[in-house]
Design a protein around this nucleic acid. Sequence first.
DNA 1: AAAAATTATGCAAACGTATGCGCAAACGAA
DNA 2: TTCGTTTGCGCATACGTTTGCATAATTTTT
Lengths: 343, 343
Amino acid sequence: MKSGQVTIKDIARELKISPSTVSRALKNHPDISQETKKAVMELANEMDYQPNIIALSLRKRKTNTIGVIIPKIVHHFFSTIISGLEDIAYAEGYNVIITQSDESYQREVDCVFTLVSSRVDGLFMSLSSETTDYEHLQVLNKRNIPVIFLDRACDAIRSSKVLIDDHDGAMLATEHLIQEGCKKIIHFAAPDTMQIAKERKQGFLDAHTKHNLPTLAQAIVYSDSLEAGYESTKKLLAEKVEFDGVFAVNDETAIGAMKALKEAGKRIPEDVAVIGFGDNPVCEIVEPALSSIKQPGFEMGQIAAQVFMKQTALVDKKEEYETEIKILKTTIVPRASSVRAKK
Amino acid sequence: MKSGQVTIKDIARELKISPSTVSRALKNHPDISQETKKAVMELANEMDYQPNIIALSLRKRKTNTIGVIIPKIVHHFFSTIISGLEDIAYAEGYNVIITQSDESYQREVDCVFTLVSSRVDGLFMSLSSETTDYEHLQVLNKRNIPVIFLDRACDAIRSSKVLIDDHDGAMLATEHLIQEGCKKIIHFAAPDTMQIAKERKQGFLDAHTKHNLPTLAQAIVYSDSLEAGYESTKKLLAEKVEFDGVFAVNDETAIGAMKALKEAGKRIPEDVAVIGFGDNPVCEIVEPALSSIKQPGFEMGQIAAQVFMKQTALVDKKEEYETEIKILKTTIVPRASSVRAKK
DNA sequence: AAAAATTATGCAAACGTATGCGCAAACGAA
DNA sequence: TTCGTTTGCGCATACGTTTGCATAATTTTT
C-alpha cells in the first residue's frame, strides 16, 4: 500500500478472504473453487499484483539468483560467456549477479564472500590468474552451493566444469602452421601456473611430436600480452633466432608479435606465419587478419547454465547429483596471417 | 542448522537468551550489557554466523541491490562503465544485477520488468538504440525506484543522468581534422533517433561553422558499423567524391572506412585523415593507429553510483532529493591516422 | 523505607509468502 | 436419519530479522 506494492494481503482484505486462499488461488491450487480463483486472478491483475520475490526467497530458502565470478568483464571471451549464461538463466527465472576478480586473488576471495552472503543458489566461476590457493572455495562445498567452473578450473572442491579443449586447440593451431610449411615455430606461452596455459603449451609440443618435427631450442617464450609479444619478438629477431611460425597463447600476444615482425620488414605469412588463440573480434581488424582458434564462449555459458539447471532439478527432488565435466572443442579460423599462397 | 546456515535463533538458543537480545548485541545496541555482547560476539564468530540478507531485505524493504540495463556487455565502453559502477557499489555494500537489452526494445522492456520484480533499490540504464517509446519506464517512477541514465538518456521520466558531452567531443574531433588541414570532411553518422548521434553530428557541423568552413554536399553519411563504413567509403570513392578527412560516429565505422581507403591506395593521413569516437582499445592496434575521442567510461560508472548513493542517503533521512545531470568531458587522443607530418 | 529511575532483557508483531492441518458445510450413500 | 466423503476455506506457523513496548531486576533518589 504505502510502498505502492500490492501484496497478497491487500487482495485478501479486498475480497474478504484469507491470505492463504489468495495464495492458493494464484497458484491454481485444486482446493480452491473456480469462482474464488477467478475473482482473485482478476483482482490481482487489476491491482497489478506482483509477488514479492524477497519474501519468496526467504520462505523457500532459495534466491533464484546465480553468482558469477570472472577475471574481467571487459575481456571479450568472458562477456560472451556471460551472455550465454544469461540467455539460459533468465529464461529459467534466475537473476545473475556478476562480479569481477580483476585477476586478483584477494578480490576473488571478496567476490566469493559477497556471493555467499547473497545466498546465491549456484556459483559460476573462472579462476583469477593469481589464484593458487583454494581455501576460500571450501565454504562453497560446506554451504552446499553448487559450483561450476568456466574455462579456468581447479580440483580443490567438488564442482562441475565446462572447459575448452585447450590441448586440442593448440594442436590444431600448431598443425595448421606445420601444414603451411613452418618448420621452426615459436610458442608464446602464459605462466604454467594456469592450467589452460600448460595445456596449450603441451598441445604445441605434442603437435611437433606427432609430425616428427623437432622443436626449436628457444621454442617456448613466456610472453602473454601485446607488449610482451612485441618485445619478445624484437628480442628474438635481434638475437637472430631463426623462425618461420608463431603460435601465441592468445590473440593479443600474437598481435604484438605481428607488430614487431612488420617493423622488422618480415612478411606475414610468407616469412613468418602467425596464429593466435581466442578468436577475438580484433583478429578480423588487424592486418593481416589474424588466424586464431575459436572458443565457443556463448555455448560455454549456455552449457554451464544447463548443467546447473539439471543439478538443481535433482536437488529439488531430494536426489543426489553427479558433477559433470564438459569439454568443448575449438575450431580453427585460418586467416591471412597464416595462410600461404599455394605453390 | 540443516542448511548449514547459522541464524540468530541458533545463537540465542545456545546462549539461552532471546533472539532480540542477540540481534541487539550484534549491532552493539547500548541497551545490552557488555558481558552479553561479548558472549554473543564470540559465539557468533565461533559459529561463523552471517546475517541472512534476504530476511534483512524483507524486513527493511530494501534489497541493497542495484540493477543495470545496458545494450551489450561485450561493448568495451559499457563494460568499462560497469566496472566503475561496481567499484563504488560493492564498497557501499550493494550488489549489482546486470542485464542486457542487446539493443532490442522488447528485451529492454523485459529487463525493466525483471529488475523491478527483483526489487532493485535503483536502476542504471542506457537505452537501447531501438527504443523510441518510454511507456515501460513509467513503472519506475510509480514504484519510486531512482533511475540514473548512463550515456543514452531520455526525458520521459524523472531521473538523473550521467552523460558524455558528445557535442563537444565531436567538435574536438572535427576541429582537430581542420587543424590538420582537412577541408572536405565526411561524417559517418548514426541514426538521428539516438540523441548521442544527433549531438555528434551537430558538433561536426558546428565546428565547420566556427571555422568558416563550408560542409560538403555529401558531408553526412549514415553509416555506423564497420561494414557500413567500409561500403560507404567504397561508394564515395567510386563516385569520385572528393574528401580529405573522415570523422566517424564510432571507432568501428572509422576502421571500416580506413580499410576501404587503404584498399583504394589512399594514404592515411596524408590523403585522408581519419578519426573515430570512443577510443576503443582496437584504436591502438589498427594500422595506422586510429585517432579517437576518449570517453571516461569508468568515471561515468563511478559518478553514476555516487549520485545514487547521495540520493539514497537523502531518502533514508526521509528527505527529498533533486535529480542531477552530470556531463562528462571527452578528450582527444590523436594518433597516426590523423596527425600529419609538419611541413 | 518507599518511590523513581535506570539497566538489561524478553515478548510480540512485522516484512510477504507458503503450507500442514483442522473444520464447517454440503453432499452422497446407507 | 445418520454417517462418511468431499469441497472449500481459514488458522497457525514458519522463513530470519528488527524494533516498540512491557517487564523484571537493580540502582538511585527522596
